[in-house]
Design a protein around this nucleic acid. Structure first.
Length: 238
DNA sequence: GAGGTAATAT
DNA sequence: CATATTACCT
């Protein structure tokens, strides 16, 4: 089993917020990708082949790049060479279920821009000596969407979300800031399991990035004085 | 079809 | 306004 990270849709995450799910803590393998269709999803896989994953045909909800996802993305890019850091490969390596190539491509675009603008400033001494690591995760307020049926209430909530979103930014403070909620240490289990070996391309034996990643552990992390939900930018500085 | 970039949407 | 999606081109 190609250890994959199930993408938890915003609404799903939202749903899991209030009510206590029957399943105790630590839901290792959550529900299938995006099968939150409680209505007419009677597209059972008939005979062979088939198995039309609704994920491919339906419009996916807007993907939210959680810090965890981003972390995984960065790791993937790092572990691949710049040479192989193309959307498809990255996507495969991340093995995040539900993630499309387009998603990665888009994010990669931003990531490259970020790196580019990063070079011209902070690093006085030239040279790619210091690997671009200083990334900062941030908090995410789960928006909510549904592929098919969106109730009016949901739309309103969406608007509210967009309205209240960026309230705080990140000045690159000299010293570095105190976030009490940096991600937990990701285990570094040297797993020997490989993702699908690349085609004819030589044999880049790369170390699979941390396999486990919990999208669920998001901490509100609110400041005392502010009192506002501060959503911070994923890519600092502009 | 895949990658890269620009435009558009949310 | 930042970020994600879509359109266009190679």
């Amino acid at each position: 089993m190609p250890l994959s990270q199930t993408l938890i849709t915003p609404e799903l995450a939202l749903a899991f917020d209030a009510p206590a799910p029957p399943q105790p803590a630590a839901y290792s393998h959550p529900a299938p990708p995006l099968s939150s269709d409680f209505e007419s999803s009677a597209s059972a896989a008939a005979g062979s082949g088939g198995a039309d994953e609704p994920a491919r045909t339906l419009k996916r909800p807007r993907l939210v790049w959680t810090p965890q996802l981003h972390k995984r993305f960065v790791d993937a890019v790092a572990h691949l060479g710049i040479k192989n850091a193309v959307p498809k490969t990255i996507m495969q390596l991340m093995s995040v279920d539900g993630l499309t190539r387009e998603n990665v491509a888009s994010h990669l675009q931003k990531y490259r821009l970020y790196l580019k603008r990063m070079q011209g400033l902070g690093t006085s001494g030239r040279g790619p000596a210091a690997g671009p690591e200083p990334f900062l995760p941030y908090v995410q307020t789960a928006p909510l969407q549904h592929p098919q049926q969106i109730t009016a209430a949901m739309q309103q909530q969406q608007q509210q979300y967009y309205h209240q979103r960026h309230l705080g930014h990140f000045g690159s403070s000299t010293g570095g800031f105190d976030h009490g909620f940096l991600n937990r240490g990701m285990p570094q289990p040297a797993m020997h399991q490989m993702v699908g070996p690349p085609p004819g391309t030589g044999f880049l034996q790369l170390t699979p990035p941390p396999a486990a990643l919990s999208v669920d552990d998001l901490e509100p992390a609110r400041r005392e004085d502010g009192g506002e939900r501060k959503v911070l930018t994923l890519f600092p500085d502009r």
